[in-house]
Amino acid sequence: MSSGRALTGTAWAVLLLGLWAWGRDGADGPGAASGPTTGDIAAVGRPPGVPLPPAHSPLEPAPPRRVAVPSLGISAPVVPRGLDGDGAIDPPPYESAQTVGWYDAGTRPGAAGPALLVGHVDTETRPAVFYGLSAARPGETVAVTRSDGSVAEFTIDDVQVVPRDGFDARRAYGPRQPGRAELRLITCGGTFDPETRSYTANVVVSAYLTGVRG
């Protein structure tokens, strides 16, 4: 759609305000078929019979530099993002739609707690970095290259499509297990609502630290 930029912008506003509310006390310590999940709000969750490895001990904090999800063909630089003038987390600009934003007032990926990485699903002309994120499945790997040269390897354990109406930021972005190093990959999803000119949900992929290289 030619108005894709305006559409995703509205969805970002709702999503990021939710992140802001979570982040205040959670700190450290219009795509096509393969894009945003369509249909009813769904929870992919963990399919029966998918073995997941044990969690790795949290690492010393270090800022992220790149993120990769090999199974989805995602490999992108990561940049820190803070709050905008409205008090919401500022996503990467559309001119950098192939870049992922890290909420730098929160957890550093690999350290204890949930680290938040956000990316656009599309622009007005083409898919963006997290266009295929809703196809992620439990058991797949997310690799985060950090500023100290290490690569933190996370295993996906949950994929949710969370409705914007009644959005619970703490439930979506809060820790699943206290003391564990966790990761959230977040983008727009659901269906397109012509009345609000935005997507109806957000895709939230959850993962936890299971290894480290380098």
Rank of each mutant, 00 (worst) to 15 (best):
S71C: 04
G39R: 03
G87D: 15
P30Q: 08
G179I: 00
A136T: 09
A97N: 10
A169S: 13
A32M: 10
T155F: 02
L7M: 07
T8K: 07
P61K: 02
E95A: 15
P114S: 06
R164S: 15
R184Y: 10
P80I: 00
G110L: 06
P61Q: 05
P36D: 13
E182I: 02
R164L: 15
T123P: 13
P163S: 11
L72P: 09
V212M: 03
V67H: 05
R164T: 11
A13N: 12
P92S: 08
P178I: 01
A6D: 12
A6M: 10
D86T: 13
V118I: 15
P64A: 06
T8Q: 13
S57C: 02
R81N: 04
A128M: 06
A115D: 06
P64T: 08
T210H: 04
E124Y: 14
S71G: 08
E60K: 06
R176G: 08
A42K: 10
R170T: 06
L59F: 00
A13V: 09
A55Y: 00
T200A: 07
A33V: 12
Y103S: 00
W22P: 03
P63L: 04
L72A: 05
P163L: 11
R108E: 14
G113K: 07
W22S: 06
A32G: 15
T191D: 15
T145I: 02
G82F: 09
R184P: 08
P92L: 03
V203G: 01
A13S: 14
A76I: 04
A201L: 11
H120I: 04
L15M: 14
G132R: 15
G110F: 06
D193M: 02
V159K: 03
R46V: 15
A55M: 01
P61N: 01
R180S: 01
F154H: 04
D28Q: 07
R180V: 14
Y94I: 14
G39D: 08
G9A: 08
N202Q: 14
G110E: 03
G85W: 15
R213I: 11
P175V: 06
V205T: 06
V129S: 09
L183D: 05
P54T: 02
V161T: 15
L117D: 06
D157F: 12
T196C: 04
V79K: 11
A97Q: 08
D28V: 01
G149S: 00
T200G: 04
P48T: 07
R176F: 00
R65K: 14
A21L: 04
G132A: 14
S206H: 15
L209Q: 00
T10I: 08
D40S: 12
P127K: 00
W12T: 05
V79C: 02
V159F: 06
R24P: 00
S2D: 11
V162G: 08
T38W: 08
G4Q: 05
S57F: 07
G85H: 13
P109Q: 08
T187D: 03
A88S: 03
T38F: 08
P163E: 11
A181S: 13
P114C: 01
P77W: 13
S2P: 09
V78K: 01
L59T: 02
P58M: 10
D28R: 08
R108H: 13
Y208Q: 02
Y103M: 12
P92K: 05
T191Q: 00
S3V: 10
A62Y: 07
G214S: 09
E60R: 10
L16W: 07
P48H: 07
T191C: 02
E195R: 12
F192H: 12
A135T: 10
P64D: 10
G18W: 09
S71V: 11
